[in-house]
Simulated assay, not measured.
Amino acid sequence: MTAVAAVIALVGSLFFAFGATLQQFEAVGAAKPGLLALLRRPRWLAGGASILAGGGLHIVALGLGPLTVVQPMGVAGLLFALPSAAALHGRRPSRKELSAAGVVAAGLVGLVLLVPVSQTPTHLEPGGVLTLLGVAGTASVLLWAGSQVASPAGRAALLATSAGVLYGATATLLRVLVDGAWNWWCLLALPLPALLALMMLQRAYAVGHFGVSFASLQIADPLTAVAFGALLLGEPLPTGILPIAAASLAAADTVALARASPLAARH
């Protein structure tokens, strides 16, 4: 079943990546990249359906195989998303883009594999939920503020990182609901970071540097989930120099990806 789980997770990552490329294509072409305006675009909605399908397949894969096999498969989405987005914008991705994306993916796989898997049930008190929302919200606002004075590539990275922080908070709440005892506080809080993350991500996509946005999201989301797991759920952190090296490699080559990836023109 492990091989089946890996295949399902891989297909799920392709659905997620394709959905992201559709949403970015619509967001970068919108005069107003607000969520309400994008909800009226059929192709953006189709992208959302593809992302939901990818998420559903990822959950199925987690039910069939270990996290250490399923999670790295999600990174493959980055390698699929870049050429897909380039094709939608009528160009070919350069070798520098693809090589930088490959190194980012390698760093992410290394990081995911090095995170210890917790076997204890997760639980979050109401105070912990408020702490999670407060920390994620503060970090998101600071990243958004920094994006206002950054270059286009920097703006895309900061906005996507802000979305990744909020998605990491969402993943933490969802994990408590799935793995731990039923918690009304988590259920009520869940839509807030998820909706804010979606709005922030569309603003990142609208900038035009899709590869940078997608890579930044892929880095920030798991790192935030790991940090919240350690801070609020008492889960172990990875130790040693290897996790730091893997995260640094992914981050450094996101910068290289920003330099290699052209700004997408509005259509």
Rank of each mutant, 00 (worst) to 15 (best):
L192N: 05
V212I: 04
G229A: 02
Q202P: 03
S248A: 15
G180C: 06
F210P: 03
L232G: 01
A169M: 11
C186D: 00
T224C: 00
V178Y: 13
P222E: 08
N183K: 06
T172E: 07
A247W: 02
L190A: 04
A245L: 15
H209D: 06
L190H: 00
L233C: 05
L198N: 05
V176H: 09
L190T: 02
D221Y: 13
V207P: 01
R259C: 06
A225C: 00
P236D: 03
L192P: 01
A250C: 09
T172S: 15
A250R: 02
L223Q: 10
W182H: 12
L232M: 05
V176E: 11
P236G: 05
T239L: 10
Y205P: 03
A227F: 14
R175E: 12
Y205N: 02
L190M: 06
H209N: 11
S216W: 08
I219E: 06
V176M: 05
S261N: 09
V178A: 02
I219Y: 10
A230W: 12
L237S: 15
V207M: 01
T172N: 03
W185P: 01
A230I: 07
T170I: 00
Y167L: 12
C186H: 00
S216D: 02
A215W: 07
L201V: 00
Y205Q: 05
R259I: 10
F228L: 04
A189N: 01
L263Y: 14
D221T: 13
T224E: 11
